[in-house]
Design a protein around this nucleic acid. Structure first.
Lengths: 157, 157
DNA sequence: GGCAAACAGTACCACCTTGGTCCGGTTTGT
DNA sequence: ACAAACCGGACCAAGGTGGTACTGTTTGCC
């Protein structure tokens, strides 16, 4: 029902934590402790981020994970893509194992074309927020005329 | 995982069907037959639409549902709000029965402020599409510079 | 060399939501 | 009176989600 999974949420928190300690090696335990989250959940999500190539892992004693890239080069869209996997608002374009469209009325469907547009809009919105924005807690250019203003202002609107 | 429920999807189809036969009374059976959907599912969703005040119901033999309003006055956002109920990308602002915030780290959370913005962006996108647009199958002003063009063109971009 | 810290991988389970069905009741046109 | 159609539930199976546990493997450090 149009919700991000909690795991993805944890992933964003972990990413921000790592980004704020850019270049440093941080153990999963530390992140879990900071946010009061179950350790296994945090390790699970960190694995995903690592497999997605967003963070580096360091095994062995004193190991952990580190974010070494440019915080501006990573977008919220990128993070969600890695954490949530490929997603779509609808099954309009989904195909089964045999490659056949899941939706039986696909051709005649009145909403399919729109869902594609809405999808793009959402992904576009995600793409406009960088990890740097997240760590700073400041809105990016994304909202026309409200560039670099605090989100608090927006909430009042 | 960021998907609208199938029930909501059915609701959109039913709305379009009714909007195309604006003012006419149509039985749930007819809509279900047209889209090859299970009748009880369609009735369920029509009930929701009726309770949400979007369509009128006519009981008794020869009864059914009718859409009598202006197709331009109803937005996709309105439809989804009725069909999906109140939703949010995250539980950032969700409160339990006692009115306490569900999220334990709400104040310090680095992504909360952004989720609010993204949420608004998505709801805004939904708000830009009218039921009339859906029935015509044409993109509205919503996409700057692509006003009133077929969505097919957009897909190629 | 051995211990412990920390990641890797995988299996497992309880719970909730979702999609779908069914049934008895009420309204109303013919 | 009868049947068509909505009304309002209860009900159930399946799948996804959140969370736990356990067994490796790597590596720093004494």
């Amino acid at each position: 029902m149009l919700k991000i999974s909690r795991l993805t949420d944890y992933g964003l928190l972990a990413s921000v934590y790592l980004a704020r300690k850019q270049g440093q090696v941080v153990a999963a335990r530390e992140i879990a402790g900071f946010y009061h989250l179950p350790v296994p959940m945090v390790t699970k999500v960190l694995k995903k981020l690592h497999q997605g190539g967003l963070i580096n892992s360091h095994r062995g004693a004193g190991g952990g994970y580190s974010f070494d890239a440019d915080v501006e080069a990573v977008t919220l869209g990128h993070l969600i893509a890695v954490l949530e996997g490929p997603w779509d608002l609808t099954e309009c374009e989904t195909t089964d194992d045999a490659g056949h469209a899941v939706c039986a009325i696909r051709i005649a469907c009145p909403s399919r074309r729109f869902m594609f547009g809405i999808n793009s809009a959402i992904k576009g919105a995600f793409e406009q927020v960088s990890l740097g924005d997240l760590t700073r807690g400041v809105l990016p250019k994304f909202y026309a005329g409200q560039s670099e203003t605090s989100v608090e202002q927006m909430r009042g609107a």
